[in-house]
């Protein structure tokens, strides 16, 4: 989905009052996520205010919250109990913005900043949107999580997936 010119202009206007522009932003987030559900990438989808819940990879539940104040897409506790893999997960995140990555997969720091925060022993992924292109931001964030699971964890940390995500052992 593309934002209409009025909405896009509103977001990018530099207006500091969150209330005037955030409805447009959250609608944009909703539209992109809903489209994944419509395409069958998510097999279920529900919006509860600024919280989105959907069934996605390996038929598991995922959650994304839109933090309007911080202009952030947040995946709460996306990596539970990361002890063994925390360092590697942070390295993976850094690598997503590295110069040697193909440009179509590189996270552009001008448009989004990604980081993990640790809360209650789990890693929460925070994607701060810069510049106001929410459609691009949601797509980038979703693909970042996609790649984190289907490439990084699947290939490098199978035991972690077995223990934390009930992936079959054999």
């Amino acid at each position: 989905m593309k934002l209409g010119p009025r909405q896009a202009a509103g977001i990018q206007s530099g207006d500091k009052s969150p209330h005037s522009k955030m409805p447009a932003a959250i609608d944009a987030v909703n539209a992109v996520l809903e489209n994944y559900a419509r395409r069958g990438v998510f097999t279920s989808f529900v919006r509860e205010g600024s919280r989105f819940r959907f069934t996605w990879l390996w038929n598991r539940p995922f959650e994304l919250r839109f933090d309007a104040r911080q202009r952030a897409l947040v995946f709460p506790a996306i990596l539970p109990k990361p002890a063994d893999i925390e360092k590697e997960a942070r390295r993976f995140l850094r690598s997503c913005a590295a110069e040697d990555r193909p440009v179509h997969r590189r996270i552009d720091p001008e448009r989004m900043a990604v980081s993990f925060t640790k809360q209650k022993g789990a890693l929460t992924l925070v994607c701060r949107v810069r510049g106001g292109d929410y459609e691009h931001a949601v797509r980038t964030a979703i693909n970042l999580v996609n790649e984190m699971f289907v490439l990084f964890l699947n290939t490098e940390h199978p035991r972690y997936l077995m223990e934390q995500f009930e992936r079959p052992e054999d």
Partner: peptide
């Protein structure tokens, strides 16, 4: 393997044993 996530069009030919979303390393888009 690391290039699979870059594909923007995936054409399954004779893929009888069908993976579920998340089992193949293609992008969400």
């Amino acid at each position: 393997p690391s290039a699979l996530h870059s594909a923007d069009l995936v054409i399954f030919v004779g893929q009888y044993c069908m993976p579920n979303v998340g089992e193949y390393a293609f992008s969400a888009d």
